[in-house]
Amino acid sequence: MCARAVRTSTLGVLEMQPSMTDETVPVLKTISDDEDLLRRIRRGEIDRFVDLIDRYKDHVTRIIGRRVPADRVDETAHEVFVRAYVGLAQFSGLVPFGHWVASIAVRTCYDFWRTRKGEEVPVSALTTEHQQWIEQVLASRSDDHCSEQAHRREAAEVLEWALAQLSPENRAVLTLVHLEGHSIRETAQLLGWSLINVKVRAHRARQALRRILIDNH
């Protein structure tokens, strides 16, 4: 009864957050199927895990595709599902499996940037094309024109350039809170951090991004 109440409220949150849920996964319909599958996997039918992968791989790649370089998506998604399998004993079922696996995906991406932290990846400077893109965005008078600019290749590259200058912690929080519009509570749950930590980091990360943008335009 209690678990059902939590599940319903969590679903409510998920339905309000399209960025973290996959529109192609009908969450309500899959919950009972997931429970059945998980029961079978726990009983030793390992091969049934492939059904869970098929069901959630688009959901996971959508999350990962927005966080790691394109050439690292396959291996990161791979790691997410292996982690999910190994950690299956910790899945209580109080939240939908999709939400749980999303949390693993977010944390795996955070770990990806944490392990690269020591590698001293050089941050390339903005090119003339990027500078021109910034000028065009600033010069745009209508929202439509601004939106049109956001879909250009340069937009993604400028975003990547700005994110590359943030710490892995700031990057993770900024992506969830400011770029995807998650609440502080949801972000804390997804990252497994305290509310206060997320709140402070969200503020600092936004300030850091603003400083980067001001210094370079």
């Binding site: 492939v50 595709g65 394109a70 998604a77 791979h78 956001a150």
Partner: peptide, 29 residues
């Protein structure tokens, strides 16, 4: 800055979902 932020938020949301290489699921399994 707000204008740039809005454009970057939209750029983030407009990122296409990458496709996994064929045989990826078998390798994970």
């Amino acid at each position: 800055i707000a204008k740039l932020e809005r454009a970057l938020i939209e750029a983030h949301r407009a990122r296409p979902t990458p496709l996994l290489r064929p045989g990826w699921t078998e390798q994970v399994m």
